[in-house]
Design a protein around this nucleic acid. Structure first.
Lengths: 345, 345
DNA sequence: TTGAAAGCGCTAACAT
DNA sequence: ATGTTAGCGCTTTCAA
């Protein structure tokens, strides 16, 4: 059995209450007592039990973090932001990866409850029937502070941190239009998804704002995987239905699209233009001159954690925090053949 | 205050011992009792406290996982492997990211001890004085099963899962030599690092095996960052000291090197050849015909977790498990100008 | 099959 | 400033 507070008390010749005080940095301890206790702790290599402490305090200093896809660089960046701020406030994060499975999400929530976590930062899975009253209940029943990240839960009023999805599509779509594009393909993901909706609105409004109509055929539903946009882009190529520009609505959708273009040797922007939403590793590594509307994932993690901390501390916080992604114009948006010398790949 | 086992017992009209038995799936409970208890649990939405349970059992079903760099795709893949097997054995993982900081590593270990974790999977930070007796003690003092991942701790005999680093460099170096290369630059990382050492040996032995001598100038020490290999490659280019081939010894070192080559428009393999060790996202996405010796990170995570589970269950396990990375020859290894049509970028 | 009761290691209220 | 003591919510003997 491990060393307990009792052993320390005995060794130091004080009561266990005094040891507890030293442990919790109470000021009401004499220097002599403190020294003796600290000495004993060191000697015995004593480490307090989180369980005993948690039980008697009936709370932890753990926060739950649930992400849908840890291998997505966006989320691993978010996580670094979360731990950065978590460390600062002495909150440990218990991570769960759901792989977009609602089942895994449920299990994660269950475990977090068992651990009586102080709060929860979550990007909920995307899925059909996730907007039921029942789904929202799941979270409300937790009865702990919650901060949503990047994905909203419809009809709920949880605190959340989001990017301005409307602007994120409005800006690049406008840019493309102003470069002469009319035929702009957008892989929409599931268009019923709330995030998709805002982005779609941005796309459509950009056309209206320029007194133009978009071609509904260019809005292509898909799931959110790289696989999906890869196959759809391939199909467009094989059917000779290439537009003059693509918009990648997420990093995964962008990658799939780029992969297909690259595979067929279709160069950007000589033959087709491309702009994407969300940072892309390939851009970071190769400076491929891809025009991107970039999200600062780490900042999102930081912000979410600060908000959660405030809520835990009982502060009132705003319901929605909107971060503005910035557009970096690098060349890939140009109209085909407008500059045959600029070749991204 | 939350619902406790007592509330359930009262509601169900049984003793708390019976409730506990139901919770723990003990067979010695009558069907009637079980039904009543389960009913009460559902009604009250009762969730047992991990703290109370942990305290009375004096152990958890948590394993600690410490990685040095969660944004490195290699480690996020490892993590998915770990959770996959962890789920299977009902082990929850408490993750920590050290950012290669020994200080953060220490803090993580401390917290894991507070939580009385059942075992630990760790990739220790790289660092100068990490081979001291004192460092090893740190881990031995934990007194729990430990599995090392990808990085050894010298002079220790912890169980670990590694890739065959020797072969990982021997094979591609030989390949390059057989393609006519003599002037092969290798960024070695810290050559005192045990992992680097094995890889270096592979490089050197490949030359001996072909009755050739390598040029010591081509072994370039650096730290393990992308930044580092980027700058060094840049320097070689600017100094007109380009070799005929580069070997990327890690994914980060590869990326830095590729970035510099791309930036200067130096094409592979027309002007210089390249082979790397470890998978590269750019290859996955763009099929860039990069010849790589690829590690299966997910498999490594799985294997490590299985080993840890065995150790927790008291089984004897082998000390070192060596996974063999596979070499995929895709074209980037060819001797410059041997095929001017093959242009990777 | 069930229940009573001790105890896991700590905190916090109270007393001194 | 320090000690005593009563829990915190559960598991686990032991007895019935």
């Amino acid at each position: 059995m491990a060393i307990t507070i009792n052993d320390i008390a005995k060794k130091a010749g004080v009561s266990l209450a005094t040891v507890s005080r030293v442990l919790n940095k109470s000021p009401h301890v004499s220097d002599t007592a403190r020294r003796k206790v600290e000495q004993a702790i060191r000697e015995f290599n004593y480490i307090p039990s989180a369980y005993a402490r948690g039980l008697s305090r009936n709370q932890s200093n753990i926060i739950g973090v649930i992400v849908p896809e840890i291998t997505n660089p966006f989320f691993s960046e978010v996580i670094t932001g979360i731990t950065e701020i978590g460390d600062k406030h002495n909150l440990n994060a218990l991570f769960f990866n759901t792989d977009e499975s609602i089942d895994k999400e449920r299990r994660a929530l269950r475990i977090l409850q068992e651990y009586r976590v102080r709060g929860l930062i979550i990007t909920p899975v995307t899925g059909e029937n996730r907007y039921d009253r029942e789904y929202i209940q799941l979270f409300e029943n937790l009865n702990i502070p919650i901060v949503l990240v990047d994905r909203d839960i419809r009809n709920s009023d949880f605190t959340g941190v989001y990017f301005d999805d409307y602007a994120a599509l409005f800006k690049p779509t406008s840019l493309l239009i102003e470069n002469g594009h009319k035929d702009i393909v957008l892989f929409t993901g599931n268009p019923d998804h709330i995030v998709s909706k805002r982005r779609l609105e941005g796309y459509c409004d950009a056309f209206s704002a320029h007194q133009m109509a978009y071609n509904p055929k260019n809005l292509i539903p898909c799931d959110f995987s790289m696989e999906s946009s890869y196959n759809l882009t391939r199909k467009l190529i094989l059917d000779h239905n290439l537009p003059t520009a693509f918009i990648g609505m997420t990093n995964m959708l962008s990658l799939g699209c780029l992969k297909a273009l690259y595979e067929f040797g279709i160069s950007i922007p000589d033959e087709v233009a491309f702009v994407g939403y969300d940072r892309l590793d390939v851009q970071d590594v190769f400076n491929m001159h891809l025009t991107l509307v970039e999200k600062d994932a780490k900042e999102m993690g930081r912000k979410a954690t600060e908000l959660l901390y405030d809520k835990i501390m009982g502060k009132k916080t705003s319901t929605r925090t909107i971060l503005t992604p910035q557009m970096f114009i690098r060349g890939s948006e140009r109209f085909p053949s407008s500059d045959p010398n600029l070749r991204i790949f």
